[in-house]
Design a protein around this nucleic acid. Sequence first.
DNA 1: CCCCAGGTCCCGC
DNA 2: GCGGGACATGGG
Length: 287
Amino acid sequence: MSRTAVFPLRDYNLAATLNSGQAFRWREENGAWENIVAGRWVRLRVNDKTLHAQVAKPQKDWQWLTDYLQLEVNLKKILADFPEDDPHLAAAKKTCRGLRLLKQDPWETLAGFICSSNKQIVQIQQIIGELCDRYGEPAHAGWKTFPTAVRLAATTEADLRDCRMGYRAKYLHASASMIASNEVDLTAIATLDYLDAQTELKRLPGIGPKVADCILLFAYGFPEAFPIDTWVLKALRQLYFPRRRPTPRQLHTFIREHFAPYHGYAQQYLFHHVRTHDGLLSGNQKT
DNA sequence: CCCCAGGTCCCGC
DNA sequence: GCGGGACATGGG
């Protein structure tokens, strides 16, 4: 039983991973990263290819943390399966070294990404922070847990709107209610195949194809999920279809074939690459 | 006052 | 199916 633990790290860029728009609550303090994971406050620090973890209460096992961080995943193997003849992914591999996918709590991920639509990442973090401050349970040193679906279902749409989430308040409240009442079973979704799981998630208000894919990728770990947001769409069009705009059908066929078998990792590498190297893409072609 | 943000929903064709 | 606009709020 210990309040600290040490893990060897290989091919793991913690800062890039925690800051890549898949999780919204990590805060950096003096080079250490703090958050609530699996209901526990945790502080992470990297020195010399070693991860040092600290928690508030002694732990007998740390599986909750190794799962969340996906420490046992062999990144090198995944990157080796990226398509050979793709100069854009090759560039992304270089600029995103050590970038990982996390395995987060489904409900927290779902709620976070409902709030993400048409918002910038900084503002999503702000909304989620407000939500936790108001409706989470005290955890440690001022930190609150992420509020449960039952708790949010017990609020009102106006309460949620006060967290500055605008029209998303209606979606979040309705989705929380459907989950709290077991009309949608988040545990069962893990047992479905990718397309059925996506269909099930899209029954919840505020969840379309993009948000569903974020949940399927960042929480459930479906490797074939490929969230298409404004950045990725722009990147796909300019890098892979420079001549003519692909129809949605063409785009999905291309994605399914070209980025197999680790569509989601490829997506995250493209996303992080273009987002941290603005200027690679030019012009806005939203419509 | 303009445009845009890790989109979704709803409408008319 | 697909094209367009509305939607809250904040930042540039």
